[in-house]
Design a protein around this nucleic acid. Structure first.
Lengths: 354, 354
DNA sequence: CTGAAAGCGCTTACAG
DNA sequence: CTGAAAGCGCTTACAG
């Protein structure tokens, strides 16, 4: 492009052919060097010359051309139903970390709580991803998927049969929470669930209800409500339900996520319900904000970063053709008790202190 | 993994050639139909036959092959320095919405507060993105970039010369905040900044300091500290700085983000500093949690979703070859006053209402 | 309106 | 150790 007529304004893409010409070798050799596959296949001085040419020209292997030739790209797609949950940001960070720089992380975002539909999935797959990570899926989505690419599931309890999974032991955390509330003397409780039909939420609820029942806490079906993972939505639902609950003697409400719990906290303040004296509140996630909410929110801590890391690690093994060994990974969860459930200073039972 | 010798287990990819064979046309015709470029170029009944074959076979245009032939992919890359900020989740949602389904959103994630380096950028560009969105960049990164693809900047005050930008009027919000604190009678203040060398933070700080000074609030250089956007880090920095500030008579601290402010709130509670009586605290972002923090956090509201939407819209125009018209877009910000700044130490205003 | 053919940039057997 | 060539799946002038 030294002095032609039609000067194309875009800085010409550097191709392997250009590098080859400069180094005095074939494009095949350039490819070998650029991909580090020189072992016993390229002469030392050719390696050096190609490297030099690559550096001088600023050559980068074209991702598209390479993907087409190899039949697979370097893209890892992460499908998740709720990017707006801060919990998720940590999961992403963990994935990114364990995946390393040779894979590009493509985040598939949909409406909050929704999963991509069959069409979207096909479009995603047409990118020939090197691997797939699916967070908090439901069975329906996985059936649509039928991915030919390596696939790892995150936070997908009960769906281990579809693919290797990294799970959180949310059931254990849920039980700890129920036990904690029982120990504090609560007898009547409510549950604010997430509307998404995601398995992890079903497990949280079931484990909580079971443990609560076994410890003498009543949570009648009418005291289980569902909202989207949104502070405002949770607040509104709670506002609507609270009068009935109060009449029924409810003194504790467990929420499927901290975000739901924030909504309850917010509405409780508006309604003048004292936390925790009149009502104990708790959630799942242990988001950073739960330490500064008013009052501090008792929450089941979920190791988000570790979840992402572990999943990325597993996927990487799969993409490198290694096997995983049977049995999924399950990460521990634990209850973090804060002011929102702490028995009033005056006595064990909230009622007793009145 | 049934048990055959070399049974290729992956369900064979459906290609344009297969569709062509089935419909009794050439692959060129299939391409035309699949891309909706039939106007006056394909006979009606051929269109129908191809469509039928596409449906029967479940054909999807291969993204890689298509990208290589076209010279550009359907990927839009979103580069952002801090995915862990919940603010950002809303930006993404806005982008996704305005971009529509024909573009795939690829999120480039790096260490919190860091930008991809030259190498990373090249790797990203080798994906031949249809467009680029860069959130809260610094000048250095943009100079590295030199993108041949359409590019739109988000929240990049002062960098409009690099590319079309959608900005937030953070300076106005910062001034409102300074005015609010001055009105409440504060004379000595501090500022907790973000360490990232991002322009938006420089603007926030400069506007705040200027307005504060003009209204008789002193913020000496020693009272400006910086931390990463992290509750714990902000808390630690505040803990370290507070004794000095207190001695100097500081009664208000403005923070570059709500996340920083949560850290201050948290540490203040630990240290027994009463908010807002002893210390007023405020941030930028107006995250959902700011309504439920203890106390509610005064914050400069930033329209995150609108920011993403507008940027996606602009980029889309660019990618479709339309022009943008001069002058970037700037979105309003506004101060939301809550409990964390509502009383004045000296008793000027709110104190009177006690 | 239609199809044969070139070409996008790369990788990988293959023959030397 | 090396390079010519086929091929990845598609799009787009081009000739008919």
């Amino acid at each position: 492009m030294d002095s032609g007529e039609q000067v194309p304004q875009r800085p010409r893409r550097v191709t392997a052919a250009m590098v080859a010409a400069r180094a005095g070798v074939s494009v095949a050799t350039v490819s070998l060097v650029a991909n580090g596959k020189t072992a016993g296949r390229v002469a030392k001085d050719n390696i050096a010359r190609v490297r030099e040419a690559i550096a001088e020209l600023g050559y980068v292997v074209d991702g598209i051309g390479s993907s087409l030739a190899k039949g697979v790209s370097s893209i890892v797609i992460l499908v998740a139903p709720d990017i707006s949950n801060p919990f998720f940001a940590k999961v992403i960070a963990g994935v990114r970390e364990s995946l390393g720089p040779q894979y590009q992380l493509l985040l598939s975002v949909t409406e909050a709580g929704e999963f991509p539909e069959a069409d979207d999935v096909r479009r995603l797959m047409s990118l020939r991803p090197a691997g797939l990570l699916v967070d908090a899926p439901n069975a329906g989505f996985l059936e649509d998927l039928a991915s030919p690419s390596p696939l790892v599931l995150l936070d997908a309890p009960g769906l281990e049969s579809y693919a290797p999974s990294v799970n959180l032991d949310v059931a254990s955390g849920a039980r700890q929470l129920a036990a904690h509330l029982a120990d504090a003397g609560h007898k009547e409780a409510a549950y604010v669930d997430s509307v998404t039909g995601t398995e992890t939420f079903a497990v949280r609820r079931a484990a909580f209800l079971e443990e609560a029942a076994s410890r003498g806490i009543t949570v009648s079906p009418k005291r289980i409500i569902s909202t989207t993972i949104d502070v405002g939505a949770a607040a509104a639902s709670f506002a609507w339900a609270w009068p009935d609950w109060q009449r029924a003697g409810v003194t504790a409400v467990a929420c499927a996520t901290d975000t739901h719990a924030y909504g309850v906290l917010q509405e409780a303040r508006v309604a003048g319900v004292r936390i925790p004296e009149e009502l104990a509140v708790a959630g799942f996630d242990d988001l950073p904000y739960s330490a500064t909410s008013n009052p501090g929110l008792t929450s089941v801590h979920l190791p988000a970063t570790a979840l992402g890391q572990k999943a990325g690690e597993q996927l990487r093994r799969l993409m490198e053709g290694k096997s995983l060994g049977p049995g999924g990974v399950t990460l521990e969860t634990s209850l973090v008790v804060r002011g929102s459930t702490k028995a009033s200073p005056a006595g064990h039972l909230p009622a007793a202190s009145h």
